[in-house]
């Protein structure tokens, strides 16, 4: 039996959030945390609410806080997160809770949109693809793979305090993804928009983002690259 403690909150019936305990029969299997949630929803309490989609770690729906650490429920095996017999599942920290494990991600998405996350190149496109060498393309590795699960930004204290002003690790990773793309020509404009005291420079190098990213990406490094680009631009 696995003891699972779930964060519960239904805005229609609950004054305040509370933790609810379930004893779940996992039959000794090393399930993923999402499987445990599916078991609880199917067999124990159908009102338990969470997001899920691909169940293989590529869609980014089920970012949750499991035993104190952010991650994707579908690719986090019990053996990795459960120490002792207890699994505590909470919503991603720092964002408003809509219900149970579902958070309002509007602020997170707004920061993503702020970096203009699309290729900008006003020159007329050729009849075939724009050419890019494998080396130039390699600059995008470790950047384009982001799945927008928000595990990083919601583990970042700077994002907790200023989610409306600090772009946060996920948004900045994407900002750099386009700065690093040899096909993008809006570098100057992009950098100009990042040079305020909040957008980039609230990053204090805490590296929680690197620690939790389920895709093994390194936003802190990308932020460092942006800072260097800003510095080079100014000098």
């Amino acid at each position: 039996m696995l003891e699972v403690s779930l964060y519960r909150y239904n805005p229609e019936t609950d004054e305040a959030p509370y933790m609810q305990d379930f004893s779940v029969d996992t039959s000794g299997r090393d399930l993923m945390v999402l499987d445990v949630l599916e078991l609880i929803k199917a067999d124990y309490d159908g009102s338990v609410t969470y997001r899920r989609s691909c169940r293989e770690g590529v869609c980014g729906s089920d970012g949750l806080n499991m035993n104190g650490k952010n991650g994707l429920a579908c690719v986090t095996p019990l053996s990795e997160t459960v120490k002792g017999e207890k699994l505590v599942i909470r919503p991603l920290p720092g964002l408003p809770v809509i219900r149970d494990l579902v958070v309002d991600m509007s602020l997170f998405y707004a920061q993503y949109e702020k970096v203009q996350p699309y290729l900008q190149n006003p020159s007329p496109a050729p009849a075939i693809e724009r050419l890019q060498s494998p080396e130039e393309r390699a600059q995008l590795d470790g950047l384009y793979e982001c799945i927008l699960c928000a595990c990083c930004s919601t583990s970042c204290p700077s994002f907790w305090w200023n989610p409306d002003r600090f772009i946060g690790p996920a948004g900045l990773l994407q900002a750099y993804r386009f700065l690093a793309d040899s096909r993008d020509t809006a570098t100057e404009e992009r950098l100009g928009k990042l040079d305020d005291p909040f957008s980039v420079f609230r990053c204090h190098g805490i590296q929680n983002c690197v620690n939790v990213c389920p895709k093994g990406l390194n936003p802190t490094k990308a932020i460092g690259h942006i800072r260097t680009m800003l510095l080079n631009r100014a000098t």
Binding site: L194, D195, D196, P197, F198, S199, V200, F201, R227, L230, L231, A234
Partner: peptide, 8 residues
């Protein structure tokens, strides 16, 4: 007023 100058 600019992040870069403050940082520098």
């Amino acid at each position: 007023r600019t992040g870069l100058s403050d940082w520098l």
